[in-house]
Design a protein around this nucleic acid. Structure first.
Lengths: 347, 347
DNA sequence: CTGAAAGCGCTTACAG
DNA sequence: CTGAAAGCGCTTACAG
């Protein structure tokens, strides 16, 4: 009866008929627009409820908003993204915005397709986590849609907001921590991305800190892909070389856990033969079998702030804002030799 | 010029003008509909390319399809879902369908909202992974949208397709494996869900297998939530009780890794004092520090098949199909006491 | 405060 | 094979 035969959906027209008002009036109630009498509001709301009306987001998007926010993640294997999502979720909880996620498989081309397809679906705003797309793609996109990035560093960006932890400082803190615990030959296991600015920042911080501690001769950066096999091959080679480092700083926890596995298989004791440090301080760090020292950048805060900034953008803010979290090292067993290491405590 | 001022978007109308044909003709080329001359096709395609035309999915959805497939996951913490996603992705690679993900935080109410909002966004079909919503909600939803579930068991379901591994058999294989390795007091760490049929199946298999091996007196099922704190509290209590089991079968890897951590902290040796077995055979099982025996249910196959079935449904198939994968135990160090256990090898 | 009408960008019968 | 027109379910000026 009141239902559209085709889709089984109640439309705004049916609500209007039921309430005895115009379609425009129902629309106004829906949007909580100004200039509607309480009486009409009450009537319309009653009909909506009675008919179990749900506005069609796609139709709303034709003229107005879809109330959809798109979030892109590089992958689903890195548990850090769950923390970010939790933050975004809690920021959006009391709003009418709905989250839709996309995964780019850390591939710039797939990510561009994904972003385009989110715009084709009229999403009201985008949060890009750990984006790898070209700036030449990002700029025009941002000029057309409210956009916030997490984990992307750009100097004086004005067309979109950014949310970051201070990745350079994070790396500096790691080196400082390792040096304070007697490690000297500190290598870095980095990502072989050509576009990740987050990686650039961490590498920069690592180099800088090594220099500051007079350890430039030990600077060694391995840039490796994310597949298990690549990490294994590179790490095995490094740890079996005559020039084996005594500490390995990994760009993310997930990779650090693999390193612990490989080192263990090679018969190396952690942290005595090798210290391992990760980044992101994900829940796996706390597990006794990992006991992984890591850098906390508070994914939940990053997620929360990005959603907050995005909503502001959607509501009309024009000037860019850049939110930065200060990272901190959470020291655990993987870098704390019992009673300190024999060598190098003199600094 | 050729661009719509407002959104900076090229519309089908502008393509039609550029190509000197009607809007309907462009639409037909877009949909690869029958009855279009090669000459017209070529012309239109050239204009599309030249103007960099992208159809607006929301507008297409008003009459036809949006070419969007919605996938719901319980959470982003369980690495198993990355495997499923990989399978779905590879099935959709050569199609024009775009994936949009939603996360329900293992909460039925949030999941229902999520599903509704995906329908409001005119998604062409839905894949529900580890759904927890009520059948009373699922049935009417499935009658309106093509739907496939992964990890949801229903007897003779006819309104949607299901893709599963044989969860009952999986549990049976675990008990059999543990018994063969000398364990007797085998407890199960399960999930306190009231709606998960997957859990019911695994519990059933566990009970049945324990009975088959004459171990009904040792049947012990702990139903616990997914938060770290809940798992910790329950596991600590269990492992410190006088009636401590000698093996613990965990409903998913992620929980099993926590159990390994807790047991380690309590000074229990794995697998000598306690065997631990997980489910899903995620990549973490292979890490030397975990070395976790687990049940492989091939998430990638589950994902691939679900996408395949969904596309068939969208294309019009009416009869339900039910795909089942046979699970297998992947034995690792967490359940293989060196040289076998002293007791109970007599069976 | 309320409503009739136009319009968003597509697809879908229906003529020709 | 091609196109003019109606329509999908909303929102947006614009009258009243």
């Amino acid at each position: 009866m009141a239902q559209n035969q085709k889709s089984g959906r109640v439309t705004i027209k049916e609500v209007a008929e039921d309430a005895g008002v115009s379609v425009a009036a129902v629309s106004k109630v829906l949007r909580e627009a100004y200039g509607v009498s309480e009486a009409l509001k009450t009537k319309v709301r009653a009909s909506m409820k009675k008919l179990n009306y749900r506005p069609l987001a796609t139709a709303r998007g034709m003229r107005g908003q879809t109330f959809t926010i798109g979030v892109t993640f590089p992958d689903l294997r890195n548990p850090f993204f769950a923390d970010i999502l939790a933050g975004i979720n809690s920021a959006l909880e009391r709003t009418q915005y709905q989250l839709m996620l996309g995964v780019s498989l850390s591939t710039p081309l797939i990510e561009e397709t994904l972003i385009d397809s989110m715009i084709d679906r009229q999403m009201d705003g985008l949060i890009l986590v750990g984006t790898t797309v070209n700036p030449a793609f990002l700029e025009p996109t941002a000029s057309r849609k409210p956009l916030v990035t997490i984990g992307h560093h750009v100097e004086g960006e004005s067309s979109f907001d950014t949310v970051n932890n201070d990745d350079r400082l994070g790396a500096i803190l790691v080196v400082r921590h390792l040096v304070a615990n007697g490690y000297r030959k500190i290598a870095m296991l980095s990502l072989n991305s050509t576009t990740s600015t987050l990686i650039t920042e961490r590498e920069h911080g690592y180099r800088q800190a090594m220099g500051d501690h007079g350890l430039q001769e030990h600077v060694q950066i391995l840039r490796v892909g994310q597949t298990l096999r690549e990490v294994q091959t590179a790490t095995r080679r490094l740890l079996q070389s005559p020039d084996k480092p005594d500490a390995l700083f990994c760009w993310t926890d997930f990779i650090a856990l693999e390193v612990i596995s490989i080192a263990t298989e090679l018969g190396l004791a952690i942290p005595d033969d090798l210290a391992v440090v990760g980044y992101d301080n994900t829940m796996y760090c706390d597990f006794a079998q990992n006991n992984l020292t890591s850098v906390d950048q508070s994914g939940e805060v990053l997620g929360l702030q990005s959603a907050r900034l995005l909503i502001e953008r959607i509501r009309g803010r024009q000037e860019a804002e850049h939110f930065v979290v200060t990272p901190r090292v959470v020291a655990r067993g993987s870098s704390l030799a019992v009673g300190g290491r024999g060598m190098g405590q003199g600094s």
